[in-house]
Amino acid sequence: MEKALFIIIAVIAVAAALNVLIQRNPLYSALSLIGTMAALSVLYVMLRAQFIAAVQIVVYAGAILVLFIFVIMLLNAPKQQLQIDKQKGLRYLAIPLAGLLLAEAFYVVWRVQDIAMPVVKEGEEAVGTTWSVGVALFTHYLLPFQVAGVLLLMALIGAVVLARREGDK
């Protein structure tokens, strides 16, 4: 049952991801990416990472892709295909890089063959719940958490600087 569900969801995720690349209209690509994100969220739930699954929807599907689609809507240039300067050199670089990525994927699959699901008995604090994420954030990961706060502040400032370039006061 769980395996069947996994296969269905995984196929959806991969198909949607491929569609992102195939589509020529950037809007369709972005919409397809939402499908990938939703499928990934289901996979997270199946891995017992409930909190991450919900955050996946809230942040990726609900905020990042909204930004993407906003940009596409604002630029409004789907008919005139965006002129991309074809850089021949990069094309040849892509082949070894793709090979490297594939090798890495195969290595991971080969090494990690059996993942033991965290078995939690009734009454215990489960892994992947909001509680465990919250506690981990302030114990093991306190420093990364604060760094993330600084990073977000930098991003805020960066966004303002970028958008204010031309002719503003």
Binding site: L31, I34, Q50, F51, A53, A54, V55, I57, V58, A61, G62, A63, V66, I69, A126, T129, T130, W131
Partner: peptide, 16 residues
Amino acid sequence: DVALLYILGVGSVGVY
């Protein structure tokens, strides 16, 4: 466990 976050997430997808 994440019911409220689920509502928020679904609500934010509604903007599409």
